[in-house]
Design a protein around this nucleic acid. Structure first.
Lengths: 208, 208
DNA sequence: GGGTTTCGATACAGCGCTGTATCCGATACA
DNA sequence: TGTATCGGATACAGCGCTGTATCGAAACCC
């Protein structure tokens, strides 16, 4: 278990996972062959089967990694906003939320991949359990964010925080999907999200 | 082109399309083989290639049919509500909208299929164009519905109607997806939808 | 009722993918 | 520096799917 070897192995795993994310996004889980993933990563199938038991097992791992990264990214952003508030920099309510959410899935590949993960959760009950757990984590994070913004700004919610979070996430996902369908680039997608999600946030948060 | 033969041919086409809808929902477009679809329909591939040029062409046709049926179903429900209102039967605002939307994709297969169609639209630009057109039609239908309910009830919208419709559809889709992931049956799904969509409707429609 | 057409079944050649078994080179270690 | 180990490449047998070409039977037409 030498350092170099391990590092190299971890590196090929990462490269394979990255390639898989792209391929899954491009053609979907079903049509993505192990061969194609390896080709994309610059390996042969030997490397794949040396690192993963099967395509499904790999997909599971990829989904876990994506979920972990998303929640972590949101958590970081929330913390950043906390710091900003403590420094007295009062941000606009909607803008804060959008800036936080913007960290998840800016790009096309992420959106496609999330949808692929989502639909897989509908098909596989076992996978669904893990998915729901991470979805709940993400929701909690957003709830907490909303709560802080409302408390610090002396604002009022028209809805319980966790229901508000659900709606915001739903609209966020909907806009992202439509942007991908419309073929919008990152900038345009971001702008569209600001507008539409901002509208919902202002609908939910009552200004006094 | 005798009647009987034609009818029979139409029948096999329909059976193949039904089977395809199930298989696409179960395993996705990519993993659905022509063979499997035919097996499900009780035919061999001979019948398939006699009726469709390819799996993709068939998917396109299926998507068109689904879209057509959905919009048509909504249109019928909207008309029903119009009649009810003319008869003086004043329905609850949220309930009316939910009853209309409930007509689209009650079941698990429809939800899966819609997601499959949706994700395919993200991947295929040409397909996306057709998808967006039908999506716009559906949106228009909901906008009209909202408008009528608001006008007849002397209510006020907190948002422009078409933005309200977008949000309602987004939440509706989100709830449907989560219900499928949770493995809820039709009744539970319907109930969950009532609650969550109802909440959004009440948020958007101001009662005077 | 015999010829014609049509629809779906069957047969076939071929390809791409799978998963395993084996091999080779590089790296770590003594 | 020789040796053991490990990671990835290569080789291989086999399967399932594809799409076409052909065939048989049933329905239709006169």
């Amino acid at each position: 278990m030498a350092e170099g070897a391990t590092r190299s192995r971890e590196n090929t795993r990462a490269r394979l996972l990255d390639a898989a994310a792209e391929v899954f996004a491009e053609v979907g889980l079903g049509e993505a062959s192990v061969e194609r993933i390896c080709e994309r990563a610059g390996f042969t199938r030997g490397a794949f089967y040396s690192n993963f038991a099967s395509k499904d097992e790999m997909f599971l791992e990829l989904a876990k990694a994506v979920a972990r990264d998303r929640v972590a990214a949101v958590r970081v952003r929330v913390a950043e906003i906390d710091v900003a508030e403590e420094l007295g920099v009062e941000a606009d309510d909607a803008a804060s939320i959008i800036r936080v959410l913007d960290v998840i899935g800016d790009d096309r590949v992420s959106t496609l991949l999330m949808h692929e993960i989502n639909i897989h959760a509908m098909r596989d009950a076992e996978f669904a359990a893990a998915y729901r757990a991470q979805d709940a984590d993400m929701l909690d994070e957003v709830v907490q964010l909303i709560q802080e913004i409302v408390d610090d700004g002396g604002l009022v919610l028209r809805l319980p925080a966790h229901e508000a979070a659900r709606i915001i996430l739903a609209v966020w996902g909907d806009v992202s999907g439509r942007a991908a369908i419309a073929g919008l680039d990152a900038a345009a997608t971001s702008e569209l999200r600001s507008i539409e999600v901002g509208r919902v946030v202002h609908l939910i948060i009552e200004k006094c």
